[in-house]
Design a protein around this nucleic acid. Sequence first.
DNA 1: TCCCCGATTAACT
DNA 2: GTTAATCGGGGAG
Length: 192
Amino acid sequence: VSKLSRILTLPALEAAPRLLGWHLVRQLPQGRVKLKIVETEAYHQDDPASHSFRGLTPRTAPMFQAGGRLYVYFTYGMHYCVNIVTGGEGVGEAVLLRAGEPLEGLDIMAKNRGLQDIRNLANGPGKLAQAMGIIDTSLSGKILNKSSIFLEMGQPVEASAIVAGPRIGIRRAVEQPWRFYIKGNPFVSKPI
DNA sequence: TCCCCGATTAACT
DNA sequence: GTTAATCGGGGAG
């Protein structure tokens, strides 16, 4: 069993910091895009801020499947956000990918984003999705590494280099320190 | 059917 | 710091 599949069986709160440093890769018609995950957030079923809190619906169904799938949702009428589903089947939890450091296909990402500044390509969940060419929910529920999108191991991130703090953009459960990011990384959306 | 609001972003003052 | 943009999800009636 690979290191990745072990991580994906963990509860989201344990998986979220462990997904830092992994590379998210996608093969697009124009070429390959790759970024390093530098910021994540955990969402649980008994978590009032989580889409899965109200139970299984057509939209959130992927969150309740076994770890290793994607959960992509549309929000604010214009943005898409990408999650990695973790944990066991029947439990609604996932890890939101909030920011990435562009590693490969920067020209493609820049074109997808409509701007050049590297630091502004994927330093937010909606930006990350757009940079990766995710412009609809068609990947939601798809199995990672079996579609056009993959996770590859990167350099390990030391525990001492991981910062935990409150999640961004939520109104409930704001006190929970379930956001994780790589200390000092310039591509984090909102360093504290 | 109606209504509120959101795991955001960019462009303002 | 504030706010418009923009629309689907899901609870209420």
